[in-house]
């Protein structure tokens, strides 16, 4: 059977890396996702939003 995994450009099927911090033990992949989430949230509330055109009620 053909190996299907190399159908991806970046192979994530290799063993992951983990961060230990006290009792916390998290995969780098999950940590990246959570950090990006926080970053996107911060950007969403700080980046200027384009001005909308005034409309009549």
């Amino acid at each position: 059977m053909p190996n299907l995994v190399p159908a991806s450009l970046i192979d994530l099927s290799r063993p992951g890396h983990y961060v230990h911090w006290g009792f916390i033990d998290i995969s780098v992949a999950n940590l990246v996702v959570i950090c990006v989430m926080v970053l996107v949230f911060v950007l969403a509330i700080t980046l200027p939003f384009p001005h909308g055109r005034k409309a009549k009620r």
């Binding site: 949230f41 950007l43 969403a44 509330i45 980046l47 939003f49 001005h51 909308g52 005034k54 409309a55 009620r57």
Partner: peptide, 15 residues
């Protein structure tokens, strides 16, 4: 709707 209150002016609203 084709209008929103003027205070709706943040990227947080697109989520």
């Amino acid at each position: 709707p084709d209008t929103q209150p003027a205070y709706v002016a943040s990227w947080i609203y697109v989520f």
